[in-house]
C-alpha cells in the first residue's frame, strides 16, 4: 500500500535578515493511510514547521514531500490552496473559530470554500455538529461555548468536508483530561467514516495511547524512529 504521506530529506530554514535558522534538517518519514500519527517533542524542535509543510501551508526549501499522491513542492500557490480546500482538515490549538459567525456557519466554511451552496453547506454542518454532540447549539456563537465545546466545533469543521488528511495542532493542550479524551474519540478514525489519516502534534502524554504511531522529534530531525503502538 502506498503511504498517505512520504517525506524524504526535508529541509526548511527561516531567515530573519541575514540570520538563517535551520528548523528541519533532513526529515524522512512515511505515514500510512488511516493512521493516527502523533508527532511529539520539545518546544522549538520543528514539530509545527513539519506539520505546516506536510499540509501545504508552508513550502520546504529542499527534499521530497508527497501527500495523498500530490508532490507539494512542485505545486503552485493556487494549486496548494485548492489542495488544502479539498483534502485537508485542520484542528488548531486556539480553535480559530470566527467569533461573529454561529458555530453552524463556522463549520460550513470548508464546504463554502468548495463552492457548495450556503443552504446545503449549513445542512451538512448541522449534521456534523449533531454527530459531535452539539446539535442543540447550532445557532450559538463560539464565545458562548466552553473550551471543550469549541474544540468539538473545530473538529466538526475539520471533518465536515470528509478530508483524507486531518492535521491537529495540540488539540487537547487547553482541555482537561475528560474533555481531551472526548476530543480524541471524535478524531479517531471510525470504521464507518471515509478513510482518513490524522496527524496530531502534541505535548500531551495523556493521549498518547490513542496513537497508532508516535514519532519523536528533536533538533529538526525525527530523533526516534516512529514506533507503532500495539492496539
Amino acid at each position: 500500500m502506498n503511504p498517505a504521506i512520504s517525506i524524504r530529506d526535508l529541509h526548511k530554514a527561516y531567515r530573519t535578515g541575514n540570520v538563517i535558522t535551520p528548523v528541519l534538517k533532513g526529515v524522512s518519514l512515511d505515514i500510512a493511510p488511516g493512521e493516527l500519527f502523533f508527532i511529539t517533542g520539545p518546544s522549538g524542535c520543528g514539530k509545527t514547521t513539519l506539520v505546516s509543510v506536510l499540509c501545504g501551508t508552508l513550502l520546504a526549501d529542499s527534499g521530497e514531500i508527497e501527500v495523498l499522491n500530490h508532490h507539494l513542492r512542485r505545486m503552485t500557490e493556487s494549486q496548494l490552496t485548492q489542495f488544502r480546500a479539498n483534502h485537508v482538515g485542520f484542528v488548531f490549538q486556539q480553535f480559530n473559530l470566527i467569533p461573529s459567525l454561529t458555530i453552524t456557519e463556522n463549520v460550513a466554511i470548508p464546504l463554502r470554500l468548495q463552492h457548495r451552496s450556503p443552504s446545503s453547506a449549513r445542512a451538512a454542518a448541522a449534521d456534523m455538529l449533531n454527530r459531535v454532540g452539539l446539535g442543540a447549539k447550532l445557532n450559538a456563537r463560539p464565545a458562548t461555548l466552553s473550551g471543550g465545546q469549541q474544540q468539538r466545533v473545530a473538529i466538526a469543521r475539520a471533518l465536515v468536508h470528509q478530508p483524507a488528511l486531518v492535521v491537529c495542532d495540540e488539540p487537547t493542550s487547553a482541555l482537561d483530561s475528560e474533555t481531551g479524551r472526548e476530543v480524541m474519540d471524535l478524531l479517531k478514525p471510525q470504521p464507518s467514516d471515509s478513510p482518513r489519516t490524522v496527524i496530531v502534534v502534541t505535548h500531551d502524554p495523556r493521549i498518547h495511547h490513542y496513537a497508532s504511531t508516535i514519532a519523536a522529534m528533536e533538533d529538526g530531525l525525527i530523533h526516534q524512529p516512529p514506533s507503532a503502538i500495539p492496539s
Binding site: 499540509c55 501551508t57 500557490e77 493556487s78 490552496t81 485548492q82 489542495f83 488544502r84 480546500a85 479539498n86 485537508v88 485542520f90 488548531f92 480559530n96 470566527i98 466554511i109 470548508p110 470554500l113 468548495q114
Partner: peptide
C-alpha cells in the same frame, strides 16, 4: 490565516 489554511486563496 485560518481561512487561508482551509483553502481560501488570496
Amino acid at each position: 490565516g485560518a481561512l487561508k489554511a482551509m483553502g481560501a486563496g488570496n
